[in-house]
Design a protein around this nucleic acid. Structure first.
Lengths: 336, 336
DNA sequence: TCACATCGTGAGAGCGCTCTCTCGGCCGCG
DNA sequence: CGCGGCCGAGAGAGCGCTCTCACGATGTGA
């Protein structure tokens, strides 16, 4: 192992060049107001000249803050990597974090070993907070970390509402699903079905509830799938087998809606004439299909941003911000 | 700002509980062989009991290593977030990094301010190395960092081969493109065209070269696009306008191939009967279309893994590993 | 005029770790 | 029996920073 004898400029050298003490130099660089004007100028000039960069390790040793938060995908499968949803949330989170000069540590917890390592790491105080994305069922990890004093926030409301609660940012899944069904009804569809996501995830559950709220007894079918294109395709076939007179389908995400579109094509159903399809998310690909997908848009990037911003606030104040539920919006394109 | 009075166990307390000195405890925990058996046992037991976690800030202050590497998307646009390619590379990189107990810091450099901040951060010695993904043109940032002593590796060969060279991991883009065209020819296609990616990226360039290698004078058209679905769709329309008798298209990535498929459908061309289409990447969505996309598979996850693994090796030894070019593979599905 | 608050500044401690230096004990060899 | 070598272990320095405390200079009111 190489030991880089990198002689980066230290606060000491900046102070020396500026002709002040290390303490004063530190005060200037951390923006303390209690510094004289000429001392401030001298330090700033010296820092610029040496292109000084604060050593975060040393700082963090004293402040007990790491200036970094983790973006954790708690997903045992590789779904993460085919669903553009995650990338958008990640992008939003990074934007928020960059503005605060905080680092974003990325982690995926695919197996127990990784979960355990991550938990130790987080408990070790190396993170100012953790964003959890794609939680399944009643994962106890977020609560455990929170109890250990690590600020935590979830993307999507927790599956069960236990005490102590963990705060979250979510989209109005139920409301979005309702408006999707209402759109279907407005367009004269009477035989409605839905393709759900994995029912151990609250987003899938809430969208399903929203569907039931509006479809009522008119529901012609329910198929459970896994948020993937192939799952959506199979579910659509099953739906059509069970109820050939189906004329409207709400898929709980766009990937499954895309699969449903394929199944419809394979069966020779014209969309939207014979069969209307509406998805959820509004991933970039949704607009690009033929016909382009009508869907319920959730503001993925904004959610990522809010997640990170609220987590940093949590870390700063020590007080968990309340849950935030962002509105959804129908985007009418060609499939309804 | 809250100052968490987190009284995490320190090496000192572990040593005390084990009845040895801090130095010995440290030796045990860092796996030094020069420790007696009973001292080792005692330390291990004490560490487990206190659930001790090394304070990385303190360690890194001494070792001058951060045990973290950055995964940087140097992409001014939001393309990153619609192309599943990146997610796969990221996934692979994380897997490699996790095995070494190293942290993956994620960053996207969308504007000059972010670039500048990142450069300062990296130069400050807070990173053991940097993986660059999606570089455009002759971006000088990787070279600058490398000259500043920060190990750097690129995903995809650099655009121009300047001195000093920066090492990289790439797929055999040119070879892959050639075999795509050969497949088209084998299937009896004679009027061939290609849709390229942005020509300021080496992957796009190399795939274009590969196409030209094999298509030769038979080439019926070339359209430049941007690796997006919509770009592919427009390019396909333009190609068909210019050469209506086209019977085979090589798109430089799957997203554009999907766009080409749509354009073909809009024009009423049957795929693959009237028109064969082949893509590049093999993103998860490729298999899911109707018909499923024939494509040139590049091992995205392996590339991510290799990128991170080689970078860590670079950081450890101080010597840049040579470039690595991974083979591609034709995946025949329904569009050729 | 003196006591006292106020403000900018410096000195110094110390965060938790790693690493070098030193030393005691034990072995083998002459 | 004495001496050098080796091995396991401890003492202590110090990485670069932040933070508390103390101090001198200046301003304010009695």
């Amino acid at each position: 192992m190489v030991r880089p004898a990198r002689n980066a400029p230290t606060l000491e050298s900046v102070a020396a060049l500026a002709g002040v003490s290390r303490a004063t130099a530190g005060r200037v660089l951390s923006g303390s107001p209690k510094v004289g004007e000429q001392a401030r100028d001298a330090v700033l000039r010296a820092a610029a000249e040496l292109s000084y960069v604060t050593n975060r390790a040393a700082r963090s040793l004293m402040t007990r803050r790491s200036d970094s938060i983790a973006f954790v995908v708690a997903e045992p499968e590789d779904r993460f990597f085919s669903d553009p949803y995650f990338a958008s949330v990640l992008r939003g989170a990074h934007a928020a974090v960059a503005a605060h000069d905080v680092q974003l540590v990325f982690a995926v917890l695919a197996d127990d070993a990784e979960r355990e390592r991550f938990e130790r790491y987080a408990r070790g105080g190396h993170l100012d907070g953790v964003v959890f994305v794609s939680l399944h069922g009643d994962d106890p990890l977020p609560q455990r970390l929170q109890q250990a004093g690590v600020p935590v926030i979830l993307s999507g409301r927790p599956f069960a509402n236990d005490a102590p609660p963990v705060t979250y940012v979510d989209a109005d899944n139920r409301g979005g699903a309702r408006s999707a069904v209402r759109l279907l009804v407005e367009r004269g569809r009477t035989r409605l079905a839905t393709i759900t996501g994995p029912l151990d995830m609250s987003a899938a559950l809430d969208r399903h509830e929203g569907f039931l709220d509006e479809s009522g007894p008119a529901a012609a079918g329910v198929q459970h799938a896994d948020f993937s294109v192939e799952g959506g395709r199979r579910a659509m076939h099953a739906l059509l087998d069970a109820a050939p007179d189906l004329d409207g389908v709400f898929a709980a995400n766009d990937l499954m809606a895309l699969g449903a579109l394929q199944a419809a094509a394979e069966r020779g159903r014209r969309v939207p004439e014979d069969l209307a399809v509406i998805g959820f998310d509004d991933i970039p690909l949704a607009a690009a299909g033929t016909p382009p997908l009508t869907t319920v848009r959730q503001p993925m990037m904004d959610m990522g941003h809010a997640l990170a911003a609220r987590l940093m606030e949590f870390a700063d104040t020590g007080e968990a911000p309340g849950p935030l539920v962002l509105p959804t919006e129908i985007v009418v394109r060609g499939t309804v």
